[in-house]
Structures are given as structure tokens and as C-alpha cells.
Design a protein around this nucleic acid. Structure first.
Length: 277
DNA sequence: CTCCAGGTACTAA
DNA sequence: TTAGTACCTGGA
């Protein structure tokens, strides 16, 4: 296996914490589907042991996905603004943001609407099984995430077999538009507002999903998705005087000096586990 | 059986 | 612009 040293990370928090839905821990290793590939990885403190499939030793895939060039210490220092972030950082040190595949992330979060996490994992995996390429690793079968073209051309009744329900039409429509060039535009543009507008123009994609895609798969360091926990916290602890999604997001983006994505990730992880009303 | 889940689109004031 | 409501579906 390949080795990568001096890399502070907590794989459990980072891979199984709800950024991505395609990771499994099997034995000592984590296996994750990233687009049409698989990454296998484990850690011993700050040393990572990794392998990619079907091409072996794809360092670029590993490096991009884990964002190895981020200055983690600096980010941690920047977002450590108060007693809440201090406690969150202490408890969840090693939590990192990923750079997942944008279309996989987008489709997965479209599926997330009004579903719980086990159900999201079920549907995304079922879709992969139906429309993705088989990748065998260590005698386990994995399925690459479906290509946009496959979803764009899929029959709605086929999509429904993955139990996505009313989201099937969102998946097909969004896949069509992305495949027709919108994804290329999104990958090219760097302006936060423009990218968000492009994403939310997709059928079935609102503010929350757009922010997840930007934070988890497009490396927008200052964009954090406001889930129910973020909203509660902003209102109750930071005294934000508005319940509007845009105002809440803006508060965090100002508060964390360019690193709201990271700050939000720590904070919301902490709150989810420590909320006392 | 009823309720709910990491939201969004739609409709009516 | 803002507040309510339906929505597939499986699990609690």
C-alpha cells in the first residue's frame, strides 16, 4: 500500500460523518466510492495507508479527495473563535473537509431531501448498483457512482427502483442539465454567488443542497450548509436575529474569516452530539 | 397505525 | 415576500 505521512485526520469523523454517503468501514479499512473509482484507506495516527482502484496508486485521486495541500493547523487556528469552537476542535480534532466528486455529491444530496441518513445511503448505493460499473476490491463488490449521462437517459420507472420516490424527476432533470454543459460551467467558475445560482437553478436543488455541493465537492472554504442544527445554534447561542437561510449563512461566513465551511463542520458536529436545548 | 427523516416546489395570502 | 403544505418510502 501507499503511505502518506504527517497528515492530521480522523477518518471516522471525516468519512462516516455525513459529508459523503459512499464510505464503509470493513475490518481495519475504509472503502469509499468516488465517482467511478474506489479508495481504500486506513490510518495509524498521522500516517495514512491508501490504495486506489481500478487503477492502482492514483496519487492525484487520493490527494485531491483528501485536500492534502490545505494548511490544517492554520485553518484550525482561524476558526477557533470562542468557547464552542474551542470545545469542538478539542473533541473532534482531525475532522476535515473532503473534495468529493461534484455530480456524485449533487445527486446524493438531491436524494437526501426529507430522508434520514440510512435511507440516503440505501438509495445512493442502489442507484450505483443499477447504473454504475462494478469494481471488485478485496473480494468485495463496489459500484461506481452512475455517470450523469446514465441518469439523464434513465427511465423514471427504473430510477424509482432505487426508492428515491418523488426525487426521481429531480435526478433525471438535474442530470440532463448538468450533462449538457452546466457541470463544466460550474467547474470553471469561481464566484460563489454565480455557482450557487447555477446550482439552485436545477430542479430539486435549493439553498441547502447547493451549499453542501459547494462545501463538500467544490472547495468553497467559506460556504457552510445550514442544517437544522446550524440554524438552532445561530439563533440560540450567537443571537442571530433572523430565521432566514441567507441571513444565517451570511452570519457564519462573516464570523469564520473565510473558513465557514470548516468552522461550520466542527460546530455542527459538536452540536449534534451535545445539544441540550 | 402514526410519525418522522440532513429539503424543495408549489400555492395562497 | 412570507407562511403553510404535499411529497415517496422505510423504519421507529
Amino acid at each position: 500500500m501507499n503511505k502518506y505521512e504527517n497528515f492530521p485526520i480522523n477518518l471516522d469523523l471525516t468519512l462516516l460523518g455525513g459529508q459523503a454517503f459512499s464510505w464503509d468501514k470493513i475490518g481495519n479499512y475504509y472503502y469509499g466510492v468516488v465517482a467511478d473509482k474506489v479508495i481504500k484507506i486506513k490510518q495509524k495516527d498521522n500516517i495514512l495507508f491508501w490504495q486506489t482502484y481500478p487503477e492502482k496508486d492514483n496519487f492525484e485521486l487520493f490527494a485531491n479527495y483528501f485536500r492534502i495541500n490545505e494548511d490544517y493547523e492554520n485553518i484550525i487556528q482561524t476558526i477557533n473563535k470562542d468557547e464552542y469552537t474551542e470545545r469542538a476542535i478539542k473533541k473532534y480534532f482531525g475532522l476535515r473537509l473532503l473534495n468529493a466528486d461534484p455530480s456524485q455529491t449533487l445527486i446524493s444530496y438531491i436524494i437526501s431531501a426529507n430522508k434520514n441518513i440510512p435511507a440516503i445511503r440505501f438509495s445512493t448505493r442502489k442507484l450505483s448498483e443499477m447504473f454504475g460499473e462494478t469494481i471488485e476490491v478485496d473480494r468485495h463488490k463496489f459500484y461506481g457512482f452512475p455517470r450523469l449521462s446514465a441518469l439523464a437517459n434513465a427511465d423514471i420507472n427504473e430510477l424509482l427502483k432505487s426508492k428515491v420516490g418523488f426525487r426521481a424527476k429531480y435526478i433525471k432533470s438535474s442530470a440532463q442539465v448538468l450533462d449538457n454543459g452546466l457541470l463544466d460551467s460550474i467547474n470553471t467558475l469561481k464566484d460563489e454567488k454565480e455557482v450557487r445560482e447555477m446550482l439552485t437553478s436545477l430542479y430539486g436543488v435549493g439553498d441547502k443542497i447547493a451549499d453542501c455541493v459547494m462545501g463538500y465537492s467544490l472547495e468553497f472554504n467559506n460556504v457552510t450548509a445550514m442544517d437544522v442544527w446550524g440554524k438552532r445554534f445561530a439563533l440560540d447561542y450567537y443571537g442571530v436575529d433572523s430565521n432566514k437561510y441567507d441571513d444565517l449563512r451570511t452570519f457564519f461566513s462573516n464570523y469564520f474569516d473565510g473558513y465557514a465551511a470548516w468552522g461550520g463542520q466542527f460546530l455542527f458536529e459538536y452540536i449534534r452530539n451535545h445539544w441540550e436545548g
